[in-house]
């Protein structure tokens, strides 16, 4: 079954020092290669900061485009992994190993499965 591991964290007000940055990056690289090599990895992306986000809505025919993310929350979506594992416990194990769990929080959501139409 597929699960989306959504990586949430607070965006830092100022950039961390290069030493801190290097240490954190090394953790992410280690996790990324572990999950890619595990046979459970489906896909994953890291996202640019929310200052680069644009929100689009349709009000009737009118397209409303605004700067920034839809919801103003403390923790923002910073990236995700999609994995294919047997059950929630296995998905939670991967989420707990991800550096995102340490520096913010991980939301684990099952991907919806649709029955194929009856033949």
């Amino acid at each position: 079954m597929r699960y989306l591991l959504l990586i949430y964290s607070e965006e830092p007000a100022s950039p961390p020092s290069p030493e801190v940055m290097d240490a954190v990056m090394a953790e992410w690289v280690a996790f990324d290669s572990a999950i890619r090599g595990s046979g459970t990895y489906v896909s994953g992306e890291a996202l640019q900061p929310t200052q680069t986000a644009t929100t689009v809505r349709l009000k009737g025919e009118e397209r409303i485009v605004t700067d920034g993310p839809f919801a103003e929350t403390r923790e923002v979506l910073g990236g995700y992994y999609t994995i294919d594992v047997p059950d929630l416990d296995t998905a939670l194990d991967w989420a707990a190993k991800c550096p995102g769990a340490k520096y913010g929080s991980m939301e684990v959501r099952p991907v919806m499965v649709f029955d194929p139409p009856p033949q």
């Binding site: 079954m1 047997p86 059950d87 929630l88 684990v108 099952p110």
Partner: peptide
Amino acid sequence: REARIPYRVP
């Protein structure tokens, strides 16, 4: 059911 919480002893 939907999140597939497993049916097992840890």
